[in-house]
Design a protein around this nucleic acid. Structure first.
Lengths: 156, 156
DNA sequence: CAAGGTATGTCAGAATACTGACATGAGTCA
DNA sequence: TGACTCATGTCAGTATTCTGACATACCTTG
């Protein structure tokens, strides 16, 4: 609108580009999830539970990159609407393992397909080599930002 | 906490990894900006104005990946506090070109240094080749997500 | 066993961003 | 000129997320 608006410095910043890519992904996901009446955090929660049944509220929050308070609000709504169940009593400690109900699983199906299609589109212009290069790059950035000296497999 | 929590499918998804990286960057930026009493959007707005003086509210919103309504709230606060100035009348059309005041410029200095240091840390483990590969990968993802067939220089 | 540290679930309030809506100004086109 | 489209600035209300705080449960350490 005012000028061309290119090539100052922002356009050479990997941080800005990362935010730009993330924003584009968010917009694209919201676009396909909106018709299903589902937000990104909503979808993330269900997807996490599908792939790792029994995750606690705090674990879901970490997996969806929100605070456990925010996830708690969502989880209570999902529980109220019958997409998720949690035991009344914690089997151990305080953490309540959550699980998808059949209804939750059914609701997730379409969303998963929609999100997969977005990811496929995102990767459409890249070769397999480029994809794995991007994968390693992102992992490296995450590791550096978190201040780890190791970040690939610390379980064993 | 429950299990190890690895290797299901999320860990192989570039979309999830992108969100993870973006989240790590956001957390790191918030961490260094908080002592300066500045949010990310707040910083983004000032940085955009420093690099492209005269941007309008809507243009700033696009550059910071928020709606123009959200940016407007921020701009009004920045204007009220003397970091930014906008003319009372639009020189042409309705868009009001915003500019940093000396105070805004001074406030931005420390923030820029802090954010730069985060970006440096993020890239610390990567070679120059890896960085440009990551750059191209992210650009490709953005282009594909937005559905463009061309996305590098459409001004001329 | 007692004490400290860590992690969890949850409530409450504040901050932030979003959607919807309206009026204005500029450009296009018949 | 007049109708149409598009972009902008702005107001209002809603929604989502966050920070702060508290009590509880486990685990270590002395």
């Amino acid at each position: 609108m005012s000028q061309k608006g290119e090539g100052v410095d922002l356009e050479t910043s990997l941080g800005y580009l990362l935010k730009e890519a993330s924003s584009a992904l968010r917009v694209a996901m919201e676009e396909v999830l909106r018709p299903l009446g589902m937000s990104i955090t909503h979808y993330s929660c269900l997807e996490l539970l599908a792939q790792r049944p029994g995750l606690s509220n705090s674990e879901l929050a970490r997996g969806a990159f929100v605070t456990r308070q925010s996830m708690n609000v969502l989880l209570q709504a999902l529980e109220r609407d019958g997409y998720v169940t949690r035991p009344a009593e914690a089997p151990v400690g305080k953490s309540l393992p959550a699980r998808l109900t059949p209804r939750g699983r059914r609701s997730l199906e379409k969303a998963t397909a929609a999100v997969r299609s977005v990811e496929v589109r995102m990767l459409s212009g890249m070769t397999e080599t480029e994809r794995s290069a991007a994968f390693r790059s992102l992992q490296s950035m995450i590791r550096s930002l978190r201040g780890d000296s190791d970040g690939s497999s610390e379980s064993a």
